[in-house]
Design a protein around this nucleic acid. Sequence first.
DNA 1: AAACCCGTCATCCGAACGGGTGATTTTAGG
DNA 2: CCTAAAATCACCCGTTCGGATGACGGGTTT
Lengths: 145, 145
Amino acid sequence: MKPIYKTALAYGMALAVLTTLLKAVEYQYWARDLSVEFYIGLVAVFFTGLGIWAGLKLTQKKVVTVAVGPAFVLNTHELQRLGISKREHEVLALMAKGLSNQEIADTLFVSLNTVKTHTSHLFMKLDVSRRTQAIQRGKELRLIA
Amino acid sequence: MKPIYKTALAYGMALAVLTTLLKAVEYQYWARDLSVEFYIGLVAVFFTGLGIWAGLKLTQKKVVTVAVGPAFVLNTHELQRLGISKREHEVLALMAKGLSNQEIADTLFVSLNTVKTHTSHLFMKLDVSRRTQAIQRGKELRLIA
DNA sequence: AAACCCGTCATCCGAACGGGTGATTTTAGG
DNA sequence: CCTAAAATCACCCGTTCGGATGACGGGTTT
């Protein structure tokens, strides 16, 4: 809210200064026999521009579009905090792809028992009891895409 | 872009009309011995306000562009195309929450066998063989959040 | 060297899951 | 009204999953 107040203040100051300045110049033009209508028109145009500028300043905040991107960034911090090893993380990723333990085992060229060990550790560290929950949790914590 | 031109036109018309109107009134006040400075101030304030209004009108379009967010909309078309019933859809949603078949049964106040039937139908219609895949597929097709 | 973590593999067991088949009831539409 | 689809439940069977435990080699840290 402060910026708005600042803008309003700045505008008020500018208005005061310019008004004073114009009044000073006014007599000069007056001496040169310029019509009142012409002078009035100038003032109107000038302050219209000033008003537009002020209006833009005051509404600029709203124009700030947020623009969200779905770019995935791995949460290394959480990985460390939970003590999830590299291999466990791989297993989690494959699990999230809908692969069975056997398929994961084949993918990683290890035994089914090994995969089961990894998954067990994962469930412990993620504090879940089912693979579907592990996937959910993993996505929540941005451990997997 | 048309609205902008319209706004500009409307503004120009208003300015012309008001200027003329003010000039007409001007002589009245002039006759009442009001100072030129006071009159100038009024015009300045008035056109400043007019300028602000014009500025807001001209920038309103930008303000609308703020809209962002991952708002979820259910893909009714896919639901129909795959012939997924209301109950099956419910089961899918709960499945995606990481619930077991038994938990889903308890949630929906039905038998475990009933849930199993629904899941079987779901797997057929989604062309998958595991619940993790069903969840994936459901999210891909925007059947679930 | 000892303690420790990681990754590997194993066995056992019970629970959960998936597939198949069949049946009844309720609901919705022609 | 009658039928088709949806929803409900059941039983069987085999697979998968999850939990517990133990083991072994290779690193790192202390």
